[in-house]
């Protein structure tokens, strides 16, 4: 179980995150939604020890993550950030192989390659296996990065806008894969999402953020109402029922 305690982040005098107290479940899909600048990505960075908080702490099963052994932590939680820039010339296989680094420390075994191939197949990248990542399209590259963190086989998987650059087919595929991982392999998948309909259809729980604070933490059914959504995004939004599901046609 991952918990945050009075987590704060300041840049100079501006407060990015204010006293966040959250509990991430041990399994299931959780989506974090909210307008730009709400502090979603910062929260993810702090929870995954990529950044140090100004005050407060994050605990994994009760112990502060900054005091845990980082090499062991890499087998328990994985994070993929929104933007990734790699200078090294890597093939897709090399990149996914890095996802197994916490286990093989530079010497991948046959078992590691099994996991690597599994992740590559899951992300439908077999034909690009030997291609350099800087020669891929944006969506293919995004899938390669997701394959890397999937290969890491952690209990907790944090993805910051995983559907960036992806077409409809791959977006749905990835959400289904993550859903399956959460239900069958009892993993906890935490996503930062912009498309509320995707978030509502695939999550067990939605966390809504605004101005650096958590304003809602609830089931998708309770979040998908006119008042709650309009309040989160500061615009009039209307939820409709299509095929028995709550859908918000925000683009109209």
């Amino acid at each position: 179980m991952i918990q945050t305690h009075q987590l704060c982040l300041n840049y100079g005098s501006s407060q990015i995150l204010k006293d966040i107290n959250l509990t991430f479940k041990e399994s299931g899909v959780t989506s974090i939604i909210g307008p730009n600048g709400a502090g979603k990505s910062s929260l993810l960075s702090l929870v995954c020890r990529l950044q140090k908080p100004s005050s407060g702490s994050v605990t994994l099963h009760g112990s502060n993550i900054l005091q845990l052994d980082n090499a062991k932590l890499a087998k328990q939680l994985a994070i993929l950030r929104q933007e990734n820039h790699i200078v090294s010339r890597l093939t897709v296989e090399d990149l996914v192989c890095f996802g197994r680094f916490p286990y093989h420390q530079g010497r991948p075994s046959a078992a590691d390659f099994e996991q690597i191939n599994w992740a590559i197949e899951l992300m439908e990248l077999e034909e690009f296996k030997q291609r350099y990542i800087n020669e891929l399209s944006g969506g293919q590259r995004q899938r390669a990065y997701i394959a890397m963190v999937l290969a890491q086989q952690t209990d907790y998987l944090f993805l910051d806008e995983p559907l960036n650059n992806l077409d409809m087919k791959h977006s749905v595929n990835i959400m289904k894969t993550l859903r399956k991982a959460a239900s069958e392999m009892k993993k906890s998948v935490i996503l930062v999402m912009h498309d509320i309909n995707f978030a509502a259809s695939y999550s067990d729980e939605i966390i809504a953020m605004k101005h650096g604070e958590i304003i809602h933490q609830d089931t998708p059914e309770n979040i998908m109402t006119n008042e709650v959504l309009s309040n989160i995004y500061d615009m009039p939004l209307k939820v409709e029922q299509i095929h028995g599901k709550s859908v918000c046609l925000y683009y109209l």
Binding site: S45, C48, R49, L50, N70, A71, K72, L73, A74, K75, A78, I79, L80, R81, N84, H85, I86, V87, S88, F98, G99, F101, P102, Q105, G106, R107, V149, Q152
Partner: peptide, 21 residues
């Protein structure tokens, strides 16, 4: 420690995620 330098070259966020101090 040569293998750790491979990971370090991926940048701080990814290296941290992969368990490098």
């Amino acid at each position: 420690y040569h293998h750790q330098f491979d990971v370090m070259a991926l940048g701080k966020p990814i290296a941290t995620n992969l368990g490098i101090n």
